[in-house]
Amino acid sequence: MNPITDIAPQLIRGLGTTVTILIASAIFSYVMAFIAGLCRLSKNIFLRKFTGLYIEIFRGTSLIVQLFWLYYAIPILFDINLPSNWIIGVIAIGLNYGAYLSEVVRGSILSIAPGQSEAATALNMSSFQRMRFVIFPQAIRMMMPEFGNYTIQMLKGTALVSLIGLRDVFYYGDIMRSTNLAHAPLIYVVVLVFYFILALPLIFLTRKAESIAKKGVAN
């Protein structure tokens, strides 16, 4: 069995699902991260506690459990029959990593020296302007490497969606394996290489982000 002519074409059929789920859940998680991260820093105690609850629930349990739970609960809660579980995969991965990343957002903002905010106050900036022009641009640089790392984790997480019936790269690999048991090792290795190739650009972007974060912040 030839990995390039026999296995790869089969796996490519699942590439669309894997990549679209990754992109959609990454965007969703980034949005959640900023919303939740800023809510955690809010002066409103209710908002802070409520967001804290979301974060601890999703960080304190497993992605696979959340995925299954939402798979059974979403159709009931919203009384709908989804044409595909794609959206469930995106919601589960997005909420899970949104929770982790919100702590990155919060930590980066808190790590900016208080003198920065004081200087902005001395220039009579409003609290929004302090955030927008002074704190945020610096905090973003510090967040980038962790966002890269977590995006790689999300890619790994997408392999779970085959468990709720989505036809991703892992799904097609596993189908092939079930009809070619003797070639199982080769098939799985090719599947893993597929994921690694998808991860490579993320790995390089993360390293780049690390080097940027390392230099840009000294006062």
């Binding site: 790994k156 392999a159 599947v191 994921y195 690694f196 993320l202």
Partner: peptide, 8 residues
């Protein structure tokens, strides 16, 4: 590290 543990 960068490939899914479930496949491993």
């Amino acid at each position: 590290r960068s490939t899914p543990p479930i496949i491993q």
